[in-house]
Amino acid sequence: MTPDLFFQYLFAGVTYGAIYAIVAIGFNIIYNTTGIINFAQGEFVMLGGMIAISLHQVMPLPLAITLAVALTMVIGAAIEIIFIRWLQSPSVLRLIIITIGVSILLREAALHIWGESIRSLPYFYGNEISSISLGSVHLSPQVLWVIAACGIMVAGLSLFFKYTPTGREMRACSANRTAAILCGISTRNMVTLSFMLSAGIGAVAGCVMSPITYTQYDSGTGLAIKGFTVAILGGLGNSMAAVAAGILLGIIEAFSVSVVPLAFQDAIAITILLAILFVKPHGLFGSSVAARLKDF
């Protein structure tokens, strides 16, 4: 393999990986405060993209994206308040089924509002054929936007969870819910907040990737599967590990093209998921001791 081809695969892999990582971070935030997997995470990504595309017809791009992220956060909060907040000590299984139902609901609603057609935001910089050359490697400028968005969100979240009072309260909920309640933290509000936060992150992902991948009413499903794989691969609940795992999976997928036919690309992701579940069920970077203390 020539060095050019190597770097071309590498960058393709990092692009996929950054997208998977952002989705996985959304899974992790909700997992940390509620202990459940929110299977509607992919739909947040779709909603962010779709709302931004609709708004962009009447307003400039930065404003459309900001509003779309805000609206998706409101939708995320509304979902939590309507479907989850009022439940009295629900089981994990029940919550998961609810999120699956919500994902179907959002998908069908999107089908009725936006129809079947594929849409996309314009490229933030340049157009469909512009590329940046790094040596002999060619990249779409949008790829840099995706990587930057991923980096900024991870850094922002780390700071948020470490230094702000709200962030610490959310971490307290995840560490020990009973103790958090005893300390006067409103765990219910923290759960709502976690849904808002992960909806917002999903929406940002939906906007930055829309020019590359297009947005369609059902584009969330595939992303949710990849994001879930990455979240498990890194160890549920660990956002930094999700980034590492996401980029790892993206790179493996990109390089797999050089040895096996492209049609096997998705099979590789699923094979890795299965292997991880058998060999290291708590993820590459997870701790087995911590995993034993969790319900799920």
Partner: peptide, 14 residues
């Protein structure tokens, strides 16, 4: 052959 839901084919193109 690629998946009909593929979102990026840059590795294939490379």
């Amino acid at each position: 052959t690629y998946d009909k839901k593929s979102t990026d084919l840059s590795a294939l193109v490379a």
